[in-house]
Design a protein around this nucleic acid. Sequence first.
DNA 1: CTCAACGTTCCAGTAGGGTGGAAGGTCAAG
DNA 2: CTTGACCTTCCACCCTACTGGAACGTTGAG
Lengths: 129, 129
Amino acid sequence: MWIGELANATGTTTKTLRFYESEGLMPIPPRTSSGYRDYPSDTVQRIDFIKRGQAAGLTLAQIGEILHIRDGGNTPCAHVQSLLSGRLKELDDQIADLLILRETVGSLHSASLRAEPAACAPNQVCQYI
Amino acid sequence: MWIGELANATGTTTKTLRFYESEGLMPIPPRTSSGYRDYPSDTVQRIDFIKRGQAAGLTLAQIGEILHIRDGGNTPCAHVQSLLSGRLKELDDQIADLLILRETVGSLHSASLRAEPAACAPNQVCQYI
DNA sequence: CTCAACGTTCCAGTAGGGTGGAAGGTCAAG
DNA sequence: CTTGACCTTCCACCCTACTGGAACGTTGAG
């Protein structure tokens, strides 16, 4: 299958697929005599995997690591475990940070709703931030 | 005060202050005869405001809007209110998205802890993603 | 044969908030 | 007068995941 067909089958674009290749996420496909990329049909699974990895918040670089382990004939289970637990920690940290920030911004916002422009101190930019 | 002193007083760097100037967040300071930026001492308050705005998750562009309103002699209260309520909504959405993602990644991670590499299906990359 | 719809490469740009470095001028202490 | 710590400008680069466009070759239907 050519690149456009693969893009259609996976809901991406030819641009993106060439980008993935340049980033080392795609195995180098054979080319037709005229130079067109000619993908085996199971490439669809690989792209779907990349999309699921992204949906789990992994970066393309991390997804690439898993792919490389698999391409090397090994099982990436251990690496996947460690990536997922790292991701989990990041998410927990990020959520905790955002909850604190939400509190802060919430208070500022409440205060700003009671704002009286006339009470604006002339020597500062804004008393609510 | 020169740029290095201002940087020290506010916990930033001279690089950053020049960057803020290029982004239009700083009023253009007078220069000494040799071309050095010579800031009035109340510039410290302005930098502190920028840092508080960043801590509230506002972008430099948004902080710049507030600063411009203030520089124009007006009270930015109404704008600050709308920025903060927008930010609050973004935070709520972001937190909700992250909580869903955390669920997903948590399940994947739990499943991966029970991984048996031998059970790895040969036609897919990893069954846990 | 023509024409649209494909494909190819390569280069540049996006957002956001800076950072690094080169090449050069200035200030103040010793 | 020298030295080191300042200051100046300008240009490029970091990160991530693409996207746009130019310039050109290929395929397949009418």
